[in-house]
Structure formats: structure tokens, C-alpha cells
Design a protein around this nucleic acid. Structure first.
Length: 311
DNA sequence: CCCCGGTCCTGCGAGC
DNA sequence: TGCTCGCAGGACCGGG
């Protein structure tokens, strides 16, 4: 559910509170939140305590907090050897939340990890990772150079990306997104176009909701083989992908239930603007035909059988 | 190599 | 009214 717009809302919400803040304490109370962390929960806690957060960054649905390279207490200017760059990697999965709370705030219902931070201007805060379905995870991950030397993602100019996200394509709102590569990947596959949109190595940030919305807007049937789309149709689809992501971002993302919320626990408004997703049985906003839902790749596709045809 | 489908997890709501 | 079961899906992995 958290797709690009939702993760960007979270990143932008965290940015002013965590940029420049020092991590005072870490409580990794649920090891299931650290399944992608190479060490133990205790290792996660001790390696982060005392570190300073340099920035916030996002590529697709992956969010990370780059850390200052200086080791705690030993500035590089005083001869302290800088550690190789690393970041706190965050993936919200299906139901993960990053919440900003007061230092003494009671535990959240599905709280997994809590950071106590101290910001030079805002003072003490708690950053809480809560996650009902436990598909989300945190990790300390080394940062590696981007092959194209462009910034690793939105929010940070450094040409660095977490190793765990290095294989993920840039997202369609990234200025360094490669349209040509996207077109060639699409035209080279027999896979259904929707499967390609969901493939994070082709284009990142799109999940089931925005895939269905973009396909509806572009009048493309989700099962159309990628290679059956003309260049013109691929360009139109990519333009609609960008359009729907930008609109959703402007409305704070899509919230159906209490799962997706911003850092203050508030819902987004884009659910009211959905044209196809979750609207099966209701008329197509464009032609009036009843929208349908069909099983697709262990999830569902929602589309208009009149506006969206294979081929 | 390419493509597809199974798997993890928890809470909710539809339906009996 | 109370229970059970199916569904929601992001990313990864293994089989065909």
C-alpha cells in the first residue's frame, strides 16, 4: 500500500525533524522488523547509538536515512577515521509506519523499533517504526556509488544508494530516470504490462493501486503483453504513471484504513480520487461501463472492460 | 535466461 | 450473535 507518493510523504515529513539530529538511544524490541539487517538487534542498537543523521532519501518505495560518516566523538578534523558511508534503510512493506512522537509517548499498537533522537533546534523526539503485518523492515546498509553518478534518490544530492536498493530502478519522478531504458524493457518482454509496471527493476515506486490507475488513465488493458504496445502507447502510459503519482502526492497519498498515515498519524486524501482501483461494480468514470476486478499475480486488477482492451 | 507463482504476516469484514 | 475463512500485497526466491 505505501507506494511512491505515500513513502515520499513520510520522507518529507521526517526530513525537518531528523536531518542533523543525533540518535541518543535505540530500542529494537521486535527482531522481525530487522529481518534485512545483517546483524543482531543488539548490533543494530549499538552501531546506531550516538550517530548523526545527515539527510533523508527515497527511491521508489525505499527510504533511507544517510548517516554522518564521522564516528561518534571523533570528528574527522581531529583525526578520527571516517567510517565508510552507511544509512538506516527503511522499507514500509505493506503496513509500516514511521511516526514522530514526543519522547515520553506511549508505545504504538504495533511498535517494533523506537529511536530517541535529539535535534539541535527541535530538541528531543521519538521516531517510531510501527508495522502491523511485519512485511516492513529496517537495516543498517552500506551506501554504494550510483553507476550514473546522479543522486541516489529524492531528498539527498549525494550519488549514493543503499546496497539493498542498488538493483532497484530509479522511479519515474526522478530527473535521472531513463525513459529509453524503460521503453526498451517494455518492448522486449512478453509479460503483461501490469507485471512490468510492478517490476521494481524496470521502474520503481509503483504498486497495485497506481498501476491500475495509470493503466485506466492510459486505456491499456493490464494483461496486454509489453511488446504488443506501440511506442506511442508506452509513452502515454509512462506519462499517465507520472501524472497519477504527482496527483496522489499532492493529496498526501492514498489511505483506505489506518495502515497508511503520514509521520503525524494522519491519512491522505487520494482514495477519493481513485478512478479504477477498488471500484469494481461501479461505473467507469469515463464511459459508464461497470468496472471489473480479476485475479492477477496473487492480487487483483481493476479495470474497465470497454475502455481498456488487450492489443 | 526468462517468466510465473508461491510465500511471508496480521487484522478485518463478509458470510454462514 | 459468534465464528471461520478469505483477502489485502511488496519483495524475494525457486521451479519450470
Amino acid at each position: 500500500m505505501p507506494e511512491l507518493p505515500e513513502v515520499e510523504v513520510v520522507r518529507a515529513g521526517l526530513a525537518p525533524a531528523v536531518t542533523g539530529a543525533r540518535i541518543v538511544a535505540v530500542d529494537a524490541r521486535d527482531p522481525r522488523a530487522l529481518t534485512r539487517h545483517a546483524g543482531t538487534p543488539a548490533d543494530f542498537e549499538t552501531r546506531l547509538t550516538g550517530r548523526r543523521i545527515r539527510a533523508t532519501a527515497r527511491r521508489g518505495k525505499f527510504l533511507w536515512l544517510p548517516l554522518e560518516s564521522e564516528r561518534p566523538g571523533i570528528p574527522a578534523s581531529l583525526g578520527g577515521a571516517p567510517s565508510s558511508p552507511e544509512a538506516i534503510m527503511v522499507h514500509l512493506g505493506m503496513s509500516g509506519q514511521m511516526l514522530l512522537r514526543t519522547p515520553d509517548a506511549p508505545a504504538e499498537r504495533h511498535e517494533r523499533v523506537r529511536f530517541a533522537i535529539e535535534h539541535p533546534e527541535h530538541g528531543e523526539l521519538a521516531v517510531v517504526f510501527a508495522d502491523q503485518r511485519t512485511f516492513g523492515s529496517l537495516a543498517i546498509d552500506p551506501l554504494v556509488d550510483t553507476p550514473d553518478a546522479a543522486p541516489g534518490g529524492s531528498g539527498d544530492d549525494a550519488p549514493l544508494v543503499p546496497a539493498q536498493a542498488a538493483h532497484i530502478a530509479r522511479d519515474p519522478l526522478d530527473p535521472a530516470f531513463d525513459d529509453t531504458r524503460f521503453r526498451s524493457r517494455m518492448s522486449a518482454t512478453a509479460s503483461a504490462v501490469k507485471r512490468v509496471l510492478l517490476d521494481q527493476t524496470v521502474v520503481s515506486g509503483i504498486g497495485n493501486i497506481y498501476a491500475d490507475e495509470a493503466l485506466w488513465a492510459a486505456r491499456v488493458h493490464p494483461e496486454t503483453p509489453g511488446r504488443a504496445l506501440s511506442r506511442r502507447r508506452v509513452d502515454r502510459l509512462l506519462a499517465e504513471v507520472r501524472s497519477v503519482l504527482v496527483k496522489a502526492l499532492a493529496e498526501g497519498g492514498t489511505s483506505f484504513d489506518a495502515q497508511y498515515v503520514n509521520v503525524n498519524g494522519q491519512a491522505g486524501y487520494f482514495a477519493h480520487s481513485l478512478s479504477a482501483y477498488g471500484r469494481h461494480g461501479q461505473p467507469c468514470p469515463r464511459c459508464g461501463r461497470v468496472l471489473v476486478r480479476v485475479a492477477f499475480a496473487n492480487r487483483s486488477s481493476h479495470f474497465c472492460p470497454r475502455c481498456q482492451r488487450v492489443g
